[in-house]
Simulated scan of single mutants.
Amino acid sequence: MSISLESVVVKYLEAKKLSRGTRKEYRSTVTKWVSWESCVDVDEIERIHVREFLDRVYANAIENGGSNPGRTANKAREHLRAILSWAWEQDFIEKLPRLPKPKPQRDVAGRHYLTKSDLNALYFATYQLPRPRGWKKNVTVGHHWRAALVVFFNYGVDTGTVFKCAGFHEPILWRHITWQPEPPNGQGQDSRHGWLYYRRVKTQKQFYRPMNRVVHTHLKSIRADSAQLDDAVFDGGTSRPNQQFQILCDLAGVKPKRDMETGEERPWVLKDLRKTCATYYDEHMPESSIEILGHSVGGVTYRHYAHRDPLAFKAILSIPQPEAFNALVQGFDGECPCCRRKFLQA
């Protein structure tokens, strides 16, 4: 019995935990497919149909004045690939059609990651953060931001995982941190510095990650003796952490990011630290960012049979840290580890 692509996508979106924006993009691709005069049912899709559809999407993007029609067509191609792969796994189709090659696209979005010199400047700028009104913790707000920068860099977590900004966010709590070397889920090898548990905001996927020495030291530095297991680990001193992060960028002298195509300047946000994490992990150990950041990957074998935990374990314990992150490890709290220059503690 024939089944339309629209029906398959409805089932696909019900089965997958995708964000609202991603769901909207999938529905947009289906709308383009349905409005295409040569659309066919899922079990009849061949490579020629996909190629003609992508050519039509490419042509429409040019007619509508799109600045990067190749990227528009390639986005539709990725949506079709994901939908057809899922339909094949669910036995809606007997075989997967071969997809045409991606369209040429312009990849000049500019630099969307922070350099290690930027991270060093941000780390030391935390000593200049003013004391928030009503702050009663035994350490300064700068201590929390320094620990947060370390966690962002090493794990690429979402903003809501560190600073709870919305009701549905699940921040890291003290009960999510295990100081014992044994893995809390009973899988993998021991980590001498303990373990960290968190859940992704977008997919709700659970992660048990080892802590390296830098992460362990910074989390220890903000732990109070009276801390309860259900208390949040990080406190940015504000309900708008991105606004505070932009103040931190101004204090550190980090220039806004610039789009190389349009020349437009945009302020850095905490999500850019996730992109920074992916950049340095791929530079340090190729393909390690896929597992560490929890990106979805294609292929049944890769998803269900390839064991990626040892790769993530090795990458986290061996990734080179920015020089400033080692200051506290070496006992230089408030001093630059290379020149021992003092930094004013607010």
Rank of each mutant, 00 (worst) to 15 (best):
S117H: 12
G331L: 12
H218G: 04
Y12E: 02
D107Y: 07
A346S: 12
D235F: 03
N212G: 06
W86N: 01
E14K: 11
I316H: 00
R213L: 15
S191N: 13
K255E: 12
R274Y: 00
W174S: 09
V329Q: 08
L5P: 00
E335A: 10
I3S: 07
T115S: 15
H49A: 03
E63F: 04
R341T: 13
V10P: 00
I172F: 00
I93N: 01
K271M: 05
L229C: 12
G334N: 09
E283S: 13
D158S: 10
D55G: 06
A87V: 02
V269I: 14
P210M: 08
T279S: 07
D250H: 11
P241V: 11
P104H: 10
A61K: 03
E44V: 05
R303F: 13
H143D: 14
R266F: 09
N154V: 10
Y198N: 01
S289I: 01
R47S: 14
W88C: 06
H144N: 12
P267L: 11
R192M: 15
R199G: 00
V215Q: 03
G110L: 11
T203I: 05
Q243P: 00
K101D: 09
A147R: 04
E264R: 11
E335V: 09
L119M: 14
P241S: 09
Q180Y: 13
I247F: 10
R20P: 04
R133E: 15
A147T: 04
S19E: 11
D235V: 05
T178P: 06
K220D: 07
G65L: 11
F152C: 04
V162K: 02
F343K: 11
R71P: 04
F343Q: 09
R266M: 14
Q105T: 12
G167V: 06
L149Y: 06
T22K: 03
K16V: 00
V139F: 12
G237M: 03
N138A: 15
